[in-house]
Amino acid sequence: MTQPLYITGIAQSPQSPSSRAWYRFKTDRWGMIGLFVVSIYFVLTLGVWFGLWGTNWSQTSHAFHQPASVTHWFGTNAIGQDIANRGIYATKVAFEVGLLVAICATLLGTLTGSLAGFKHNTWIDSVILWVMGVLDSIPFYLFVAAIAYAMSEWIFAMHLAMILVFWTETARIVRAEVMRLKHMEFVESAQALGQRQALILFKHIIPNTNHLLIIQATITFVAAIKTEVILSFLGLGVKEGISWGLMIAESTNDIQAGYFNNFLVASGLLFILVIAFNFFADALQDALDPKLQH
């Protein structure tokens, strides 16, 4: 016997917050498409990491500026390198940069933001707010480019530059959330039980900001990839290896000569990933929003 749809839904509706979030996420079609595309990129990245594909990205040949073919899916560049291989390898570089920056910036932002929120209206809060204010007052790309240029000898200069910029946003969000949480009953209960402040912060408060951290990390991830492309285009980013930014920079010469493959592949891969990640992040935000969950 066919049952009414709403009854089925209610009967199977999960109860735990994470299950409810996943359930809500699944109902977002664009979010699922985003997740699917991001997963493909992730698989591509894993394949490059394990040496399954993209291994010949640096190999040169006599075949310059070849059109797309079975051998070269997206043709070759000015020195006979396979554009498809380079585009795929650059996915790994993008993910490496995105993940490293997202994780470090989120961690740093979480620590400082939660400390500032927990010690609200103390000198600790003032100092952290002042540092964030100073960093935020410097034009974004100027600051990142200046650090990347000043430390250009260091392979992680670009990563550090981005971490120094991106953590403040996370810190502000976490600070506001912690300021709200610390007046809640469960925190007051813990305080009444005589728990140490550090334990209260790390065990009871920060875990309750997870939904914000996940969303913020995804936003930082995409921003880091976009910034890496811009910095690499300007010659301040990736030094070893290849990135979409470098491919786009290379293509400035190609385009003048009427060859567009390098540009289309690099910018296309970037565009699709950014769009997919935005869909994914939006859906995730909706799914994790406690107000919507209730």
């Binding site: 640096s58 040169t60 020195i79 010659g235």
Partner: peptide, 29 residues
């Protein structure tokens, strides 16, 4: 520069052909 990077990449390609390991060829701009 972009052009000089391409010069480097081509040189690295030449050196791969004689068995010079990729991790021992460094771009120093």
């Amino acid at each position: 520069s972009v052009l000089q990077k391409q010069f480097f990449e081509q040189m690295r390609g030449f050196m791969h052909a004689i068995g010079y390991p990729a991790n021992k060829i460094k771009y120093q701009p």
